[in-house]
Design a protein around this nucleic acid. Structure first.
Lengths: 110, 110
DNA sequence: CGGCGTTATATAGAATATCTATATTGGACT
DNA sequence: AGTCCAATATAGATATTCTATATAACGCCG
């Protein structure tokens, strides 16, 4: 049986979204789908978390949204990582690395 | 200069506390001090986070507190990991490993 | 002895982020 | 037209950490 999806650690969603948009511009639902695929279902970002987060990131100037027509003819809001967003992503990657390192130090300490 | 302390990701404090008590019984302030030392100051658990968390963990039956006299003659509440606490610690270790794995998958994906 | 600083614990209230549940829109398909 | 689904939106609930403040008890020092 597949492992159940995990609750996101509060504070990690920005990193997941920014990192996904680093690859290419994408609309909200596609971001969520890709996160689920790459993590083999471990992270399933809920719509009620995703869209407010996208609005927040856009407010911060880290992503830029634009209404488009998807291939299937749907109205979607496509998001692009901005220059500031790349900078922020770098910061969050470093922070994440420090968190993992510190936590592992604790888990492995004698 | 030393790196600044990190904000804790919400949801990780239980793991840090339970893991620390796995080594030996300890009182609250000693737990915080050890976490800070082992992580080289990356995690500095605030008193306002620590003590409510200890109460919560005791409510859950994962740790057991007992008033004692410390060597310095201070009144401290010493906490011991219970059997259920060990089980919970194992669960949280696995969850943490899955979170790290999933996040790394995302960060390293092409 | 009395004041002062320090350690240990406690707790209320603020801030923040995610989740649940519900709503709206527009297109496709019958 | 009616139904279904994908995509986006948002209000309210929940949970956890942080800030700020408080109390108690001990040691130190003038």
């Amino acid at each position: 049986m597949p492992e159940p999806a995990l609750e996101l650690l509060k504070g990690t969603l920005d990193l997941l979204i920014l990192r996904t948009l680093e690859l290419r511009p994408m609309h909200g639902s596609a971001i969520a789908e890709r996160i689920s695929q790459v993590t083999h279902g471990a992270f399933q970002v809920k719509a009620g978390s995703l869209f407010p987060a996208l609005h927040r990131l856009e407010q911060e100037g880290w992503i830029e949204g634009e209404w488009r027509e998807s291939k299937e003819g749907r109205r979607v809001r496509s998001y692009t990582l901005t220059r500031d967003g790349r900078r922020q992503l770098a910061v969050e990657k470093k922070t994440w690395a420090r968190i993992v390192q510190a936590t592992n130090a604790l888990l492995e300490s004698a």
